[in-house]
Computed example of a mutant assay.
Amino acid sequence: MAKKKTAPLFQSWDEVNQALREISVLDAQVSEAEAKMNALINDIKADTEAVVTPLLQRKAELEAHIQAFTESRIDEFKDSKTKTLTFGEVGFRKTTSIITRNVKAILEALKQNKMFDCISVKESIDKDELAKYDDAALAKVGAKRDVKEKFFYKPTVERIEAQ
């Protein structure tokens, strides 16, 4: 069943023109409100940064001292890699990382050694390239072109600001 179109609210181009004017005014008001909001957010960020920066510096300082002391007593961690204290734990964890400097050379070596499971490839459809094909070619791959007339409007802000 087809949808019934309702009668438009506006009955003349003058009414549409006035609506565009109102949209321009509303856009200006929204921009002004967002600018005030961003200014307040920036002020809050600056105030918070002023409070947090010395705290984070002190934390980093304490972490460095804890690490230096713990490393100076590394011989105490032969039996257990963790020492539990009243307010937390310190210790050593074995970590492993893979260092890759020349990605192209490593990729070539992986391919030569048939280590394809170590190579990730992301596949996706490039719709811009696909759009260059005709409708018959699109149909062959299960795609189709959808062409619509899409409504737009663009208020003239300069004329509103001049009033």
Rank of each mutant, 00 (worst) to 15 (best):
K45V: 06
D117A: 08
K148N: 05
P8A: 08
L110A: 06
R73Y: 14
T95Y: 09
Q11T: 14
L110P: 01
E61P: 11
E123P: 00
D47P: 12
D135M: 02
K122L: 11
C118H: 13
T156C: 02
E108C: 00
T156H: 12
K150S: 11
P155E: 06
F151D: 07
F69R: 11
D27I: 09
M115I: 13
N42C: 01
K122I: 14
Q67G: 01
N17M: 06
S120F: 10
A136S: 03
E34T: 05
D43K: 14
K144M: 06
L40I: 05
L62F: 06
L20S: 08
I160R: 12
F10M: 06
Q112H: 06
A60K: 01
D27E: 15
A19I: 02
A33K: 07
F77K: 03
V121E: 00
L110D: 09
K94R: 06
L20H: 12
V147Y: 06
A39W: 07
Q18A: 09
Q29Y: 14
A68P: 00
S80P: 00
I66C: 07
V157I: 04
E108D: 15
I119A: 06
K4N: 07
L56N: 09
Q57A: 13
R159V: 08
A109T: 10
A143H: 04
Q11L: 13
S120C: 03
Y133E: 04
Y133I: 08
K81D: 10
K111A: 05
N102W: 00
S80E: 13
K111N: 03
K104T: 09
S97N: 13
